[in-house]
């Protein structure tokens, strides 16, 4: 009977491990990390696997010792317990071993964090009248509210006085659409995150991108997509999925009221700037159109027949 408890601990821990292994080994189940589609995503995934490897080692070692002890040292076993009180060498050893592992993780994390977040911080472009950061190919203002995202795309070059002015006032020709993030593969995208009401969090799983929006602040965020999932079809006048058939979503990751789950958006990564420009131009013409006939058949939609992407 005493062996039963050892087996129970073994079984439960192995079941936990097995679930992780199954989830990793069978991507078809959809139980593992979603597609990764940005430079940052690949780095974060590598880091995730590094940590998983180290944790797996410690997990197997410690649980192994525990389960073996339960098997080997029940009260019914012959002999008597050893009266040992401690061992300084062991203590030093098992203080240093995890420390080394943790320092490895820290060292690996620092450059990724710097890459993901330090650029544009402190945000120079927002506090004064500084011009647009030169390295950005695309600037998108994301305004969160209960409960959707409004994205503002600049359709002409930004005013010289900088993006602060553009973010707060903008141009008549700006394209404002809800819940759709359009970028192109390889573009250095600069997002400006805002909110009008409560804290939201802009979460794009495929980009491994997540950043809270804070009332009263504009928070810059960078990413560069590495895989495209759509292209603009001028003949149909809409965005169509490419061979990856990937559908990437945007979610809110900070509780923002009852309909927190409702803030679903979509990410469209065009293959190149040409496709993106064609989409932008088309969308702008649609939203700026002053005649009914030019709008048909999609008379009311600035954002085309996205439904075709489902």
């Amino acid at each position: 009977m005493h062996r039963f408890w050892s087996l129970l601990f073994a079984a439960v821990n192995m079941a936990c491990l097995a679930l992780l292994v199954v989830a990793y080994a069978y991507p078809g189940l959809g139980w593992w990390l979603p597609d990764s589609a940005s430079t940052q995503a690949n780095e974060i995934d590598s880091l995730f696997y590094l940590i998983t490897g180290l944790c797996a080692f410690f997990f197997v070692a410690t649980q192994g010792i525990l389960i073996y002890s339960l098997w080997r040292f029940p009260s019914t076993a012959p002999g008597s317990p050893s009266p040992i009180h401690g061992h300084p060498g062991l203590e030093i050893g098992w203080t240093i071993a995890p420390l080394v592992g943790l320092l490895v993780i820290t060292a690996a994390s620092l450059p990724v964090w710097k890459e993901a977040r330090y650029q544009g911080f402190p945000p120079p472009a927002l506090e004064g009248t500084n011009p647009l950061p030169p390295e950005a190919d695309q600037v998108i203002l994301v305004t969160a509210r209960q409960w959707d995202w409004h994205l503002k795309y600049a359709t002409e070059s930004l005013p010289a006085e900088g993006i602060r002015q553009w973010a707060s006032v903008g141009n008549p020709s700006d394209l404002i659409i809800a819940n759709e993030l359009h970028v192109w593969k390889g573009a250095k995208v600069s997002l400006l995150l805002r909110t009008t009401d409560v804290i939201h969090s802009f979460f794009v799983p495929a980009l491994r991108l997540k950043q809270d929006t804070l009332p009263g602040k504009t928070i810059p965020m960078r990413f560069e997509a590495t895989v495209s999932n759509v292209r603009f079809d001028p003949a149909e006048g809409r965005v169509v999925p490419n061979e990856t058939k990937a559908s990437w979503e945007i979610a809110c990751a900070e509780l923002c009221g009852g309909n927190h789950f409702r803030m679903r958006g979509k990410l469209f990564v065009h293959p190149d700037r040409k496709s993106y420009d064609a989409w932008l131009d088309h969308s702008r013409r649609q939203t700026r159109s002053r005649s009914l006939t030019a709008m048909l058949p999609n008379a009311s939609s600035s954002n085309q027949k996205e439904g075709a992407l489902q």
Partner: peptide, 17 residues
């Protein structure tokens, strides 16, 4: 062990919330 994932800031970007 699962706490270590959150300690690593870049992984926390994804794991957070």
């Amino acid at each position: 062990l699962s706490g270590i994932y959150m300690a690593s800031t870049p992984v926390d970007i994804y794991i957070h919330d």
